[in-house]
C-alpha cells in the first residue's frame, strides 16, 4: 500500500470526526504494544518494539569520542533513523529523506532535552575523551506511527544497555569483556506522543491509513513531574490550529500520559528482568 484513496481518506475523516476509528479504537487509544529486548548481542542495548503491526528496531552502541567544544565535560549523543525499503514499498534506497531525518531529530531532542541521560557522568577526561551514546533506529514494518514506537525503543534500549569495558591503558574499548555497568540515567524519563488532527478531532497512534489522511501533527515529549512537564515539541505539516484547538491537543496527550507511561515502563522493566 503506497497511497490511500480519496475515498478511504474521506471515510477516515468522517469516522474520526465522530470519534470513531476503523479498528474500533478510541481516539486516544494505542494499538497493542510489545517490547522485546533480544535484538543483538553485539549492541550495548537494543529493543524490538511493536505497535500493532508497526515494528521498529532500536540499538544503542557506545564509542569513545572527543567532546563537543561547548560541552567539554559531557558525553555525546547521536541519533539516526533509517526507513528501510524492507519495511514498506514506499521507501527506497538512497540518502536519508526528510521523514527519516525528522524521526532521528525528534528522538534526539526528546532524550536530550529531558536530561534523561546523565551526560556529565559520561566524561572520561575533560576536553579530550568522553563516551558517545549512539542510538540507531530502523523501521522493520511501517504500519503508522514509527516515531512513538522508535521513542519507546530508544528508552528500552537505553534502560537495558550495558556499557562496554574501556581499557584505559590500551585506550581502547574491549567489547567482548563482560560489563555490568549501566548507562547513567536520571528519573526524567521522556515519553513521546504524536498527536494527529483530522477536521476538528485529535487522535493518537495513527495507523498508516490514518497517518496518510492526517492534516498535521503536534509532537511532544513529556517528563515526569507533578504536574507533568513538556520537554520538547514540534508541529508538523501545514495545518494551522487555534489556541483552543492546540490546548485540546495537549490535553488529549496529557490525559493519556499516566496510563501510557506506566504501561511502557512496566513492559520495559519486565523485559529487563527477563534478561537476568
Amino acid at each position: 500500500m503506497i497511497e490511500t484513496s480519496t475515498l478511504t481518506k474521506s471515510a477516515i475523516s468522517e469516522y474520526i470526526s465522530k470519534g470513531k476509528r476503523f479498528d474500533k479504537r478510541q481516539l486516544s487509544e494505542f494499538r497493542n504494544l510489545s517490547i522485546d529486548l533480544a535484538l543483538s548481542k553485539k549492541a550495548e542495548g537494543g529493543a524490538k518494539v511493536k505497535l500493532g503491526k508497526t515494528e521498529v528496531w532500536v540499538g544503542v552502541k557506545m564509542e569513545i569520542a572527543e567532546p563537543y567544544p561547548d560541552s567539554p565535560d559531557k558525553g555525546n549523543l547521536m541519533v539516526t533513523a533509517e526507513l528501510l525499503p524492507l519495511s514498506s514499498s514506499k521507501y527506497e534506497y538512497g540518502p536519508p529523506k526528510f521523514n527519516a531525518i525528522e524521526i532521528g531529530r525528534l528522538v534526539d531532542r526528546g532524550i536530550r532535552e529531558s536530561k534523561f541521560i546523565d551526560f556529565e557522568k559520561l566524561c572520561i577526561k575533560e576536553g579530550e575523551k568522553v563516551w558517545a551514546v549512539i542510538i540507531d533506529i530502523y523501521s522493520i514494518n511501517d504500519d503508522g506511527n514509527l516515531l512513538d514506537a522508535a521513542f519507546i525503543g530508544a528508552l528500552a534500549a537505553l534502560k537495558s544497555a550495558k556499557m562496554p569495558f574501556y581499557d584505559e591503558k590500551k585506550e581502547k574499548i574491549d567489547y567482548e569483556a563482560e560489563s555490568k555497568k549501566k548507562i547513567p540515567l536520571t528519573k526524567n524519563i521522556p515519553i513521546n506522543f504524536s498527536i494527529h488532527k483530522i477536521k476538528n478531532s485529535f487522535f493518537l497512534d495513527p495507523s498508516i491509513e490514518e497517518e496518510l489522511a492526517s492534516e498535521g501533527r503536534i509532537i511532544l515529549a513529556f517528563i515526569p513531574d507533578s504536574p507533568v512537564k513538556i520537554c520538547s515539541m514540534q508541529k508538523g505539516e501545514t495545518m494551522v490550529v487555534s489556541t483552543d484547538e492546540f490546548n485540546k491537543a495537549i490535553k488529549l496527550a496529557e490525559d493519556k500520559y499516566d496510563s501510557f507511561f506506566s504501561e511502557v515502563m512496566k513492559k520495559i522493566d519486565s523485559e529487563i528482568l527477563k534478561l537476568k
Binding site: S40, E63, D136, Y138, Y175
Partner: peptide, 12 residues
C-alpha cells in the same frame, strides 16, 4: 545494521 557487530557500522 549498525549494531550487528562490536564496532558500530555507519548506516548506508
Amino acid at each position: 545494521l549498525s549494531f550487528s557487530v562490536n564496532e558500530r557500522i555507519r548506516p548506508g
